[in-house]
Computed example of a mutant assay.
Amino acid sequence: MRPETEAELAEMIAAAKGPLRIRGGGTREVGRPVEGAALETGGLSGISLYEPGALTMVAGAGTPLAEIEAALAAEGQRLAFEPGDWRGLLGTEGQSTIGGVVAANASGPRRVTIGACRDFMLGVRFVDGAGHVVKNGGRVMKNVTGYDLVKLMSGAWGTLGVLSEVSFKVLPQPEATGVLLCEGLSDAAAIAALSRALGSPWEVSGAAHLHRGVDGAPVTMIRVEGLENAVAYRCDRLQALLADVGTFTVERDPERTAAGWRHIRDVVPFQGRDGEVWRLSVTPSEAPGIVAQLEGVEAVYDWGGGLVWLLAPEGTDVRRVLRSGHATLFRASAVRRAAEPVFAPQPSPLAALEAGLRAKFDPRQILNPGLMG
């Protein structure tokens, strides 16, 4: 099924007799396998409103992400939250859609300082599990009373409703970028340095450490963006701040800096390699100790250590070493994903709240049933 309008989408959901497997571009195959009829949103495509002066855009949920980014780039603007391209990591094809990005709350390295995808959403239109069209939010950032369905739908993975349209805030492209690089730091030393940089007044927009950088060696990376002179000054200040940690060089070439952060954003070190991929959200200071307790793993630390991507041998029980935070089994075989809770099991109060929301928005339990279970 591939509706071309929101009305068709509502009719298809209302008429469904069984489970529906919701698909945007098919690039983010995460979660437990869903058995059901495929419902594709790619027909709900097109940018219906773009006001560069107001930094806002409205687009159909099935609009390719590449089309969104091209339109923004033509005006010297960008998506603030830097969504990753997970096709290489997950072994998927197709084109990522803006609705899929929102449904996954896909947020890249810039999230550590600027916020997540949900923080830039202004409004949504979606169809719930009963076939009702629901609208929430608008085209400007404002405080509202009642349910904030805009944020609720961001990260729901299509289990509460099928997005038909999204509106969001965008930001200008920076004039310049500088990246501080240091090779050979231990995980603990690297995370301590990233924390110090993020706590400084020098407006860091990316902070990462990789076991395997672009050239294969461990590398610690700190990004600064903004006006040319300001970037140069802030890079100098950060070098002085971290002089006791190691020698940080500065990369200013636009192509090289962009490639380096795509390497992190898209988790390139784990692409095309055997093993399971876990995604951990933890306290940065605890991250190196967690990784050290797991045998045979490789790590990509993002968000100053608050996000950890792990490449682990098949069957690794990552959750056994977590004292806090949560872990998602991001990539594994269908058999493993069917047997293991993919998303972190919730405490009883939160699980009850989630169940209540799903009963309200999808009373027949037909939208991606079990995907997040």
Rank of each mutant, 00 (worst) to 15 (best):
S200M: 01
L20F: 08
L171A: 14
V170R: 02
E228N: 08
E225L: 08
E6C: 11
Q293R: 15
R273D: 06
A156E: 13
A189H: 03
L49G: 03
H326T: 01
L241M: 13
S285E: 13
Q271E: 15
R323Q: 13
L310D: 07
D266T: 09
L181F: 03
G370A: 11
A230H: 11
G216L: 06
A176Y: 09
V127L: 11
S164W: 02
H263K: 01
N136T: 12
A230V: 14
H132E: 14
L149A: 06
L241N: 07
L194D: 02
K142F: 00
E251G: 05
G94H: 08
A207T: 01
G373H: 10
P172Q: 12
L9W: 00
A287Q: 02
E295L: 11
G356A: 12
Y233V: 12
A240T: 12
S195G: 15
R323F: 03
I366H: 05
E93S: 15
G84Y: 03
A176H: 10
G18K: 10
K360E: 13
A359M: 03
T159M: 12
R237E: 13
D244T: 10
R111A: 14
T5D: 09
M141V: 15
K360W: 09
H211I: 01
E251W: 05
P109C: 04
L171I: 14
R212K: 14
V150F: 00
H326V: 00
G246M: 01
E165W: 02
H263V: 02
V144Q: 09
G137F: 08
L371T: 01
C235D: 05
L294M: 10
A54T: 01
A217S: 14
C182F: 01
A259L: 12
K169Y: 00
V321W: 03
G246N: 07
G62V: 06
D266G: 10
M141W: 03
L55F: 13
R262M: 09
G18V: 11
I98H: 03
D253N: 15
G178L: 06
T247D: 11
E93D: 14
M12E: 12
E255G: 11
G158P: 10
V318D: 06
L55M: 13
E276G: 06
P201G: 06
A208V: 00
R234Y: 06
V162K: 05
A130N: 07
L122A: 11
H209A: 08
E298F: 04
V162N: 07
A351M: 05
A193T: 00
R364E: 09
S200I: 02
G356P: 07
T97G: 06
N229Y: 05
P172E: 11
V112W: 00
H209K: 02
N368C: 10
A103V: 08
K169M: 12
R256I: 12
V112D: 00
V277S: 07
R237C: 13
M141T: 15
L185Q: 03
V335Q: 13
S48P: 01
I47V: 14
P19S: 13
